[in-house]
């Protein structure tokens, strides 16, 4: 019943997430041929911009998918919605005046928290699976073949590391009164450095330089290397992010136990 409640609370966000994923994925599948044509044209033009990834994106559809979706837009959308799915909880209910009703039920505060996060995780997974489905169908429509194992591996990596976004969002929602104004502020606070760092590090990498900021490049960690094999899976990053996520969850739980409603 707690799962049911968390589900009704977030189902509209979930549907919005599905719609956005559908739009973004199908757009980049639809744009594949025109983008490939554009890059081919650019490469033929000696004065045009020449990036190393262009050739790869033209020749390898798997790289194309990774470049646009897992390293960019799908990842960002997934993070945004994971953080949105985690929005809510007893502090939020305090604003609505229902927290005392919830706390009067024989359910511990931690169970409230973990149920909500579990639903957020399940919805996140469903969103990711849905994106795989869109890619599979879309690729068939545009007659491109792709490696399903690569797509699944990237999806798993995105979800596994990306849950950190939900955990981080959750800590913020626990610390601050969760009304919609603070939600927007929190999302801005989380996403601004994420986007800036990702863009900056991507730029540095493309001109062949490294920076210490790459260690906190959460987006890069989620994307991983474009071709995933057992040896190229960023195990250490996964471990670090898992520990960080666990610390965040623990912090929220311990802090939540001490709140007076």
């Amino acid at each position: 019943m707690l799962l049911y409640k968390a589900w009704i609370e977030t189902r509209i966000r979930f549907l919005a997430g599905l719609a956005t994923t559908l739009i973004v994925c199908s757009y980049y599948l639809y744009a594949h041929s025109s983008l490939v044509a554009m890059w081919t044209h650019m490469l033929q033009d000696p004065k045009g911009p020449h990036f190393g990834w262009m050739r790869l994106a033209i020749s390898d559809y798997n790289f194309y998918l990774w470049h646009y979706l897992y390293d960019n837009y799908l990842q960002q959308i997934w993070c945004l919605f994971a953080a949105l799915f985690a929005f809510g909880g007893l502090i939020r209910e305090k604003q609505d005046g229902t927290s005392l009703f919830s706390l009067g039920l024989p359910v511990s505060r931690r169970r409230w928290l973990y149920t909500r996060l579990l639903v957020a995780l399940l919805e996140g997974c469903a969103l990711a699976v849905f994106s795989v489905l869109v890619i599979a169908i879309g690729s068939a429509v545009i007659h491109q073949t792709y490696s399903l194992s690569q797509v699944l591996a990237h999806t798993a990596l995105m979800v596994g590391i990306g849950f950190f976004a939900a955990a981080l969002g959750n800590v913020f929602y626990t610390l601050f009164p969760s009304n919609y104004v603070s939600l927007i502020l929190i999302l801005a606070v989380i996403s601004a450095p994420y986007l800036l760092i990702q863009t900056y590090v991507q730029h540095m990498r493309s001109i062949g330089r490294s920076t210490w900021l790459s260690y906190v490049d959460f987006g890069y960690a989620m994307a991983g290397p474009w071709h995933l094999t057992w040896s190229t899976v960023p195990w250490i990053t996964i471990l670090v992010m898992t520990v960080m996520t666990a610390i965040l969850l623990r912090t929220a739980a311990v802090y939540g136990d001490h709140i007076d409603y």
């Binding site: 609505d96 229902t98 005392l100 009703f101 009067g104 024989p106």
Partner: peptide
């Protein structure tokens, strides 16, 4: 908290704020 849980299994509580889940 653990004992409070046992209490809440045996006690029905109706808060002063009687708002409930709107949805």
């Amino acid at each position: 908290e653990s004992e409070s849980l046992l209490i809440r299994q045996r006690v029905a509580y109706v808060a002063e704020d009687k708002r409930l889940y709107d949805y």
